[in-house]
Computed example of a mutant assay.
Amino acid sequence: MASVVIYTRQFCGYCSAAKKLLDAKGVAFEEHDATYSPDLRQAMIARSNGGTTFPQIFINDTHIGGCDDLHALDRAGKLDAMLAA
Rank of each mutant, 00 (worst) to 15 (best):
G51W: 10
G65T: 07
Y14K: 02
V4D: 04
A76W: 11
G26K: 12
V27R: 09
G50M: 13
F11Q: 13
S37K: 05
F58C: 03
C15L: 09
A81L: 11
A18N: 05
A46V: 06
Y14A: 04
G66Q: 09
A72W: 07
I45N: 01
A85D: 15
H71E: 07
A84M: 08
L73A: 06
R41Q: 15
I57Y: 13
H63Q: 07
Y7N: 02
D74P: 00
Q56N: 05
R41I: 01
D61T: 03
G66I: 06
S48C: 10
S16F: 12
Q42G: 00
L79D: 11
F54S: 02
R9I: 15
V27H: 04
G65S: 06
T62C: 10
Y36F: 15
T53R: 05
D23F: 01
D33H: 00
S3Y: 08
T35F: 08
G50H: 10
H71N: 11
G13A: 05
P38G: 05
I45Q: 03
T8K: 09
V5R: 14
S48A: 14
A84R: 12
T53C: 05
L70S: 06
G26H: 10
R41A: 09
G51K: 12
V4C: 06
K20F: 10
A85V: 10
Q42N: 10
K19A: 02
I45M: 08
G65F: 08
N49T: 10
H63D: 11
A34P: 02
F54R: 00
Y7Q: 01
A43D: 12
A2C: 11
G51P: 03
S16T: 15
P38M: 11
M1H: 13
P55S: 08
F58L: 08
L79G: 04
F54P: 01
G51Y: 11
D61I: 03
A43K: 15
L21I: 04
A72D: 13
I57W: 14
I45F: 05
A34W: 13
T52Q: 15
A17T: 11
D74M: 01
F54K: 02
G50L: 12
I45L: 01
K19C: 02
E31F: 03
I64N: 08
P55W: 04
A46H: 05
T62I: 13
R47A: 13
Y14E: 06
T8E: 12
N49L: 09
K78W: 10
R41W: 11
A24S: 15
T8P: 06
G13S: 06
D61V: 00
A72P: 00
S3W: 03
A85G: 15
G50P: 01
Y7R: 01
L21E: 06
D68H: 14
N60S: 09
N49E: 14
D39N: 11
R47L: 09
R41V: 03
I59G: 03
G77K: 09
K20C: 05
N49I: 04
S3H: 11
Q56M: 02
P55M: 07
N60G: 04
L79H: 06
K25E: 14
A72K: 13
K19E: 03
F11H: 12
N49P: 00
K78F: 11
I6N: 02
Y14H: 12
D33N: 12
Q56W: 04
